[in-house]
């Protein structure tokens, strides 16, 4: 069931918006008051939506062409001069093409760079495996000093951006291409290191982050209709993760199912397993991309084929409780 305090922060309506769009609009808004914000892109500004900022603040927008490695180190240099650079490109390039630059230029010296990567996961659809980031959370999470945030909807994206601007240090914001239903209203408060429970129940714990949260939310509501009540935790803050919330829930339910649009190796599922294996050993079933490359197809087809659609989540809960 949805707790009363959660009902207050839930959005009522059927508006859908992609997190990358919320990102583009939010930084363009912040640019008005925060003059230290500069935005960098690699010839993808119309897709990452940094074009909104570029149009409004052309003097603080820098396009580096199709050269992600350079952009990431340039961002480090800008941060060293006291700027707050938002470096945007697709998640595949931010995490893999520019991995060494993220690690050595940005993370090791703890420079205040906000890496805002869009088009994460197989849910980008038709472009296929070359453009589907399924390892980015794993890569970013294993680099010391980086905060990793995967917001579920437009509201959480905007709230998370407020927090990462306040936070002095490198952050990775994982954003998605496709429109997703808005989950939270404006009264929702995002905190780095804190999860939020969308439904409560003692049959199982579902932990989700990013694009999959609205799918998991739908699954939790359908399960409730059948009398199966679960804890659904939206864990946008993958690093640092909300250990207490995971452990407390696992203690009550005894079964944890993770859902993510990412390889089940190294992502949210692994992060949850790391917490539970040391704090409260519990059975964990990881739904997501099962260690294989993505494919072309519509987002819906792919999510279903890769086994983390609403039906798969419901089935997994039912057959394991």
């Amino acid at each position: 069931m949805i707790p009363e305090n959660v009902k207050k922060i839930l959005y009522e309506g059927d508006k859908k918006i992609a997190t990358r769009v919320a990102y583009g609009e939010k930084i363009a808004e912040l640019g008005e008051t925060n003059k230290d914000i500069v935005v960098l892109d690699c010839d993808l500004s119309k897709s990452t939506m940094t074009s909104i900022f570029a149009k409004k603040f052309p003097d603080r927008f820098f396009n580096f062409g199709i050269a992600e490695a350079n952009m990431m180190s340039v961002a480090a240099g800008l941060a060293a001069m006291g700027k707050i650079p938002f470096a945007s490109t697709f998640a595949v390039f931010a995490s893999k093409r520019a991995c060494d630059q993220v690690s050595i230029s940005v993370a090791y010296p703890r420079l205040n760079v906000k890496i805002c990567a869009t088009h994460a996961g197989i849910s980008i659809g038709e472009d296929g495996a070359t453009h589907q980031a399924i390892e980015d959370v794993s890569i970013m999470r294993s680099i010391p000093n980086i905060v990793v945030i995967s917001p579920a909807d437009a509201t959480e994206t905007r709230k998370a951006i407020d927090k990462i601007v306040e936070y002095d240090g490198p952050c990775y914001l994982r954003l998605c291409r496709g429109s997703a239903p808005i989950i939270f209203n404006e009264s929702y408060d995002f905190e780095i290191g804190r999860g939020v429970k969308l439904t409560e129940g003692d049959k199982a714990t579902i932990v989700s982050a990013g694009f999959t949260t609205h799918i998991a939310f739908e699954a939790a509501k359908k399960l409730e209709e059948e009398g199966i009540e679960v804890d659904l935790i939206n864990m946008a803050s993958i690093k640092p993760i909300d250990e207490e919330m995971i452990v407390d829930s696992a203690k009550r339910t005894g079964l944890v199912i993770t859902v993510e649009d990412h390889n089940i190796i190294g992502g949210l599922g692994s992060a949850v397993c790391e917490v539970l294996s040391s704090k409260y050993p519990t059975r964990v079933i990881r739904l997501g991309v099962k260690d294989k490359f993505g494919s072309s197809g519509s987002p819906e087809e792919l999510i279903s084929a890769y086994g983390f659609d609403c039906g798969s989540i419901i089935e997994t809960v039912k057959s394991n409780i």
Binding site: V74, G77, L78, G82
Partner: peptide, 25 residues
């Protein structure tokens, strides 16, 4: 030491960022 370096190729890019930052301010 104004910038962390060691992985070759990155320092010049960092310097580009610093040069842009210096011009902005």
């Amino acid at each position: 030491v104004d910038m962390t370096t060691g992985s070759l190729g990155q320092g010049l890019s960092c310097a580009v960022g610093m040069a842009i930052g210096a011009k902005l301010d």
